[in-house]
Amino acid sequence: MSTYLTRFTLRQRTEHALVMSLFVVLSLTGLPQKYFDAAWARWMIDALGGIDRIRWFHRAAGLSFTAMTAFHLMYAVGSVATGRSPLSIVPNRKDFTDAIQTLQYYLGRVDAPAQFDRFDYRQKFEYWGLVLGAVVVISTGLILYFPILFTHFFPGELVPAAKVAHSNEGLMAFLVVILWHIYNAHLNPDVFPFDKTIFTGKISLERMHHEHPLELARLKHVQDIEET
């Protein structure tokens, strides 16, 4: 029997589940709009009930995603302001050296990958990619939703640019999730076939040893994990 540690709180797990579901809806309703010319896109649009309905779903999901992101960011700001956030997701100089060392390890130049704390550089990259991507899709999405309102404050040139940015960012998010995140969470030989941590909130001590040794060491310092 392995010993498990709690890695994610219920709030974090709920947020992940929400992002995941909304991402599926946004991709299913967004990509056919981008590739409207392709046969599969036509088929999907018809299957989902026509362009008007697809746009309705896309906007409903987009507004939900906006609300969720706003909550997440406000929560984060609140935690930092009240000093309750460990700032463990903030990138630092070590992430840079970790990345170089790990890539050298992948290339077989050094014998061991870098040792990571609570979040490794890949996870931070992915998190910040998501946050910045969210800012881009949300702001451009709102411009496309309310072009008249936004052009009261910005010139009309913004609207086609927002469309290009929204559509490209959406595609990038989709590809990142399909290729990179699915790899990390499923195909990666360390966790294959399925890294359940974000759903259960639990991580085994073995994985902590292997993937987050520095965090484990810190936790041990605070409380004697091996005993519990």
Partner: peptide, 26 residues
């Protein structure tokens, strides 16, 4: 905007692609 988004897409995938490929191999 279009140029920037294309470069970003290319850059992110060049990095991700190489990184993931190497990771998987190792």
């Amino acid at each position: 905007t279009s140029k920037f988004m294309k470069m970003l897409l290319f850059g992110v995938f060049a990095f991700f692609g190489i990184h993931t490929g190497l990771w998987f191999a190792r």
